[in-house]
Design a protein around this nucleic acid. Structure first.
Lengths: 202, 202
DNA sequence: AAAATCATGTAAGGGGTTACATGATTAT
DNA sequence: ATAATCATGTAACCCCTTACATGATTTT
C-alpha cells in the first residue's frame, strides 16, 4: 500500500528509470521501505495506468531502451493527499518477541543463538541508520541535496529536520532491540547457572 | 509462517476448539501475533493435514458440534524444531517512519495529527503490554498458570522470566515510539514558530 | 572474448485482509 | 421471541517473496 508513495517520494525529486529508481531506493527510502525490482517495475506500470506517473522510452546505444518516469500533477496530488490522510497501522506480528515468550522450550544454546542473531541483525540496521543520519546532518546525501536544491529556502530546514527525526527514531528503535537482546543473553546465563545450582546443591 | 507456531504454542498447553483458541489468542499470543478467525480455522485444518494436530468433533447440544484440537507428538517436534531454528527477519517496511521522513510536504496540522495518532496507537499497545506484564509478574494470567501447572518445578522460573523479558521488550519498544512522536510534536511546533519569525522579522 | 552491469520484466505461490455466509445454542 | 455468542468457515483480492528469464551495453 505504501510502496506507491515511497516511489512517488523519490520520483518527485526528479525523473528516473525503473532501474535507477531501484538503485536509489536501496540507498534512501529503502531504509524504511524495502522493495525488490520484481515489485518496482510492475508497480510503476500500474502507477502509469492510474495516471500518477508518465514514462518515456529513451534510446540507449543502438537498440536498447530505458523507460524514464516522471510524476504527473495528479501523482503529486495523490502524494499530498496520502501525506494528509491517517496512516493505517498494521496489527502486531512480531516473530522475535513471539519466540522469546516461549524460549523455555529451547535449549540454552538455542536461546543464546537467537539473541545473538537478534543483536547481529539490529547492529547491521543500526549501522545503516547511523550512517544515514550522519549524511543527513552533514547534508551529504546526494538525494537530499538534490531535493533541497529544488525547494524554496524556507522549507529546507524542515526537510532536514524531519529526515533527521525519522532516522533518529530508527536508531533509537535499533538500540532498544540490541539492548533487549543483551538482557536476554544475561537471562540465559543466569537461568543456566541457577539450574546447575539446583542440580548440585551443597 | 509463524502463525502455525503461535497456534502450536497455545495448543501445547491443552486441547482447544478453533473458537476457544481464537479467544485465547487475542488475550495471549495475539499480543505479538495477530490473526483473525478467517485465518485460524483454515490453518488448523492445514496443520491437521500435516499431522501436527488432531481434531475430534464433540457434540454440543442436540445437533451442534465443535472440533477440539490437540497437538500430536509430531506437532510437538515441529514446535521444538522451530524454536531451535534461526528466525528469518523480514525486511523493513515501516509506514510511520516513511511518512515522517517526508513530513515537510504536509501541513503542520497534518504533521501534528500524524504524531498524535502515533502516540495514541502506541499508548494503546503500551497499556496492553503493561497489563500483560503485571499479570505475568503476579502469575495471574490463566494461560500462564495452566502452563506452569503442567511442567516440572525447575522449568517454572525460566517460563516466567522469558515471558517477562518478551513483554518488557514490547513495553520498551512502545515507549520509544511514544517518545519519538512526542519529539515529533515538539519539532512541528518549533518549525512553525521559526516560520512565523521569518515572515515577520522585526 | 568474457565479465559486469544495465535494463526490464514474468510466473507461481504464500500469507494476510475484508467481507460475506450460515446455522446452532444459550441467555434474557 | 429475540439477542447474544458459540462455532466454522468461504471467496476475492492485494501485497510480497522467490525464482527464473532475457537480452543489450559497457568495461576489462
Amino acid at each position: 500500500m505504501s510502496l506507491r508513495y515511497a516511489l512517488l517520494a523519490i520520483l518527485r525529486v526528479g525523473p528516473l528509470s525503473g532501474y535507477d529508481l531501484q538503485k536509489q531506493f536501496s540507498q534512501s527510502v529503502g531504509h524504511v521501505w524495502h522493495a525488490p525490482d520484481s515489485q518496482i517495475y510492475p508497480e510503476l506500470r500500474k502507477m502509469e495506468a492510474a495516471g500518477l506517473v508518465e514514462g518515456e522510452d529513451q534510446l540507449r546505444g543502438a537498440r536498447g531502451t530505458r523507460r524514464v518516469y516522471h510524476v504527473t500533477p495528479e501523482g503529486d496530488r495523490a502524494f499530498m493527499e496520502w501525506m494528509g490522510s491517517p496512516l493505517d497501522y498494521q496489527r502486531v506480528r512480531d516473530p522475535a518477541h513471539l519466540r522469546a515468550a516461549y524460549l523455555e522450550s529451547a535449549s540454552p544454546e538455542s536461546a543464546r543463538e537467537f539473541f545473538r542473531k537478534h543483536i547481529q541483525v539490529w547492529e547491521g540496521e543500526l549501522a545503516q541508520f547511523e550512517g544515514e543520519l550522519t549524511h543527513i546532518q552533514n547534508v551529504s546525501n546526494p538525494m537530499l541535496v538534490r531535493r533541497l536544491e529544488k525547494m524554496p529556502d524556507g522549507d529546507r530546514e524542515a526537510t532536514i529536520e524531519y529526515k533527521r527525526l525519522a532516522y533518529q527514531g530508527l536508531v533509537d528503535r535499533a538500540q532498544v532491540e540490541i539492548n533487549w537482546a543483551q538482557r536476554g543473553l544475561d537471562l540465559v546465563t543466569r537461568l543456566e547457572k541457577e539450574k546447575v545450582d539446583d542440580d548440585v546443591p551443597d
